[in-house]
């Protein structure tokens, strides 16, 4: 098992994608199927943007073994009041400011779901959200 960690800073959209590009490089070195790499990268990027836009920052934990990659994004934030609603395409609670920057189209969670093999969301109002996702090789 190989473990890596990243931190997510609230509102720092300009650095979104750092974690996903590190993950991409590792998966390329393992010669993982490019389609699977793309799926994980897209999912991690979306989750990273979610944490940046909605929460007060957080952490990304990446674990890779021979059969899968598991990424857990944990944020300190408002939590998701209605996960079912949040999973619907186009539903967004993003602020006008975030939308102005081109984010907040309501595709985050649906997009993650489409790209990963396992998705598990734990959330507590006023505490934060933990998104765990797995792509099998």
């Amino acid at each position: 098992m190989m473990h890596t960690e990243f931190t997510v800073v609230e509102g720092d959209f300009s650095n979104a994608g750092k974690a996903s590009s590190e993950i991409k490089k590792m998966l390329k070195q393992l010669d993982i199927n490019p389609q699977k790499i793309k799926k994980m990268v897209v999912a991690v990027y979306e989750a990273e943007v979610n944490a940046i836009a909605h929460a007060y920052g957080g952490t990304i934990d990446v674990d890779i073994d021979q059969s899968k990659i598991c990424v857990v994004i944990k944020d300190v934030g408002p939590g998701i009041p209605d996960i079912e609603k949040a999973m619907q395409k186009g539903f967004s609670t993003a602020s006008a400011k975030v939308r102005e920057m081109g984010f907040g189209a309501g595709m985050g969670l649906p997009n993650i779901k489409n790209n990963v093999d396992e998705l598990d969301i734990k959330t507590e109002i006023g505490v934060g959200t933990e998104v765990r996702m797995v792509v099998n090789f």
Binding site: Q29, D65, Q66
Partner: peptide
């Protein structure tokens, strides 16, 4: 013809990547 892949066998590649890190 990926120059990045450490080995065609994922187990070997995995060991190599762990070692590199």
């Amino acid at each position: 013809r990926s120059m990045l892949k450490l080995d065609p066998d994922i187990n070997v590649a995995f060991q190599k990547l762990s070692k590199i890190r």
